[in-house]
Design a binder for these strands. Structure first.
Lengths: 198, 198
DNA sequence: TCAAGAAATCAACACTTGTTTGTTATCCTA
DNA sequence: TAGGATAACAAACAAGTGTTGATTTCTTGA
C-alpha cells in the first residue's frame, strides 16, 4: 500500500549518525588500512552506539563500499552524459573528462586503490566502463566474432584501469590531457603505432 | 654460526600439518569465499589444533597468500626461462606459454580471481610481468620519456591481465594460441590494427 | 501540539580471534 | 637408539563480532 519514504532515510537522526560514522572512518583511514579498523573503535570515535552501526551497515567493508558507490554514481553520470554515438567523434574528449574526474577525486580514489585490498573497487570500475563502451562498440568496429569483441574490450578496459592506477600511485603529476592522448594512442594503434621498433 | 635449517620447515610434522590445512582450505573454498571462512572451522575440518594454525599463518588471508606464492614462483620460473632478448623473436611463443600455464592452473586461479576480494593477487601478477618486460623494453621501442614508457607498460600489463581474467571467468573455452594471437595484435597494433573502422 | 512510529541506546548473548602457558608427542641426528 | 629440540596439543585469556530485546528519545503528520 504505502512506502512513504523508503525506510526513513531522510530522518535527521539517520543523517547525523551516518555523518558521524563517515567522518570517523575517513579519519581512521588516514592512520590505518580498512582491515585493521574495528567496528568498536569506529563507533567510539564517532560517539555512536555500536548496535546502531549494524543497523546501517553489514560491516566495515560494507560501509566502505557504500561510500565508494557515491563516487561511482557520479562517475556513471559523467559517462552517460554523452550522446550514444559519442565515440564517433573520437576518444579524446571522453578520456579527458574521465581523467579530470579522477583528478578531482584523486585523494579518495588513491586511498582506496592503495591500501584497500578489495578487488571490487577495480571490478566495478572496469564493469562500468565496459558496459558503457560495449553499447556502441560493435557499430564502430567490425569484429570477426562476439567473443573477440568481448576479449578486446576486457583488454582495453584492463589496460586503461592499469594506467589510471599507476597514475594515481605516482601522485597524479601528469595532466589529464597528457594521459588522454597516451591512452587514445595505445587503444587505437598499440605500441607499434606509438613508436617504431628499432 | 649455524642456521641449520631455517626454522625447521622440512619437519615431517610441519609438512603434515600444512597439508591438512591446505586440503581443508581448498575444500572450504569450493563452498564459500575466503572472507567467510573462520580459522575455527578450518582447523576443525583439518583436525588440527587452532593454536597450531597461528604458528604457521597470521590469518586466513595470509594462508591464501602463501598458497598463491607457490603458484607465482612457478610462473616466475617460466618467465625467466627465456633468454634476455626473447622479445626480439616475437611475442607469440612467450604468450603461448603464459596462457598454457594458466590453462593448467586454471581451477585455482579462477577460484582466487573470482571470489577473492584481494587485490594483491592481481597486483603481484602485474608487477611480475612488468618487471620482466621492462628489462628489455627500452631496447626494443623508443619512448620519448621514461614516464611514457612506464605508463605504456602499465597499460599493456593491465590490459593483458584484464583479458586473462575474462578468459578465466568464461571457463577457459578458448585455446591459448587463440588468445596469444589476439593479445599480440592488441599490444602491437591496438584496436585499429585489428580491424578497420567503418 | 501531541501521539504513533521510527531511530538510537543500553545490556546481554554466544560466538570468533589472537595470544599465552604448560604439557605431551614426535622428530632427527649424533 | 637415546636425548635434546621442537612441533602439536589443551586450556584459558581478553577483546572484538554480530545479534537480540527492552527502553528511551527524536521526528513528523494530523
Amino acid at each position: 500500500m504505502e512506502a512513504k519514504q523508503g525506510s526513513g532515510r531522510d530522518d535527521r537522526r539517520v543523517r547525523r549518525t551516518k555523518q558521524m560514522l563517515r567522518s570517523a572512518l575517513l579519519e581512521l583511514l588516514r592512520e590505518k588500512s580498512v582491515d585493521q579498523i574495528t567496528v568498536t573503535e569506529l563507533t567510539q570515535k564517532a560517539d555512536v552506539n555500536r548496535g546502531t552501526f549494524y543497523g546501517h551497515y553489514k560491516d566495515i567493508y560494507d560501509m566502505v563500499e557504500q561510500m565508494e558507490n557515491e563516487m561511482f554514481q557520479e562517475f556513471s553520470d559523467l559517462l552517460h552524459a554523452y550522446p550514444a554515438d559519442a565515440l564517433r567523434h573520437g576518444l579524446r574528449p571522453i578520456l579527458q573528462d574521465v581523467f579530470a574526474f579522477l583528478q578531482r577525486y584523486g585523494d579518495v580514489a588513491a586511498a582506496l586503490l592503495e591500501r584497500d585490498r578489495d578487488t571490487r573497487f577495480l571490478e566495478k570500475l572496469k564493469g562500468m566502463v565496459a558496459e558503457r563502451v560495449s553499447l556502441e562498440w560493435g557499430r564502430l568496429y567490425q569484429f570477426s566474432t562476439p567473443k573477440e569483441q568481448a576479449f578486446c574490450l576486457s583488454f582495453l578496459v584492463g589496460g586503461a584501469v592499469g594506467l589510471i592506477q599507476s597514475w594515481l600511485e605516482g601522485g597524479r603529476k601528469e595532466s589529464p590531457e597528457e594521459l588522454a592522448a597516451l591512452s587514445e594512442a595505445m587503444i587505437l594503434r598499440g605500441i607499434e603505432g606509438l613508436n617504431q621498433p628499432r
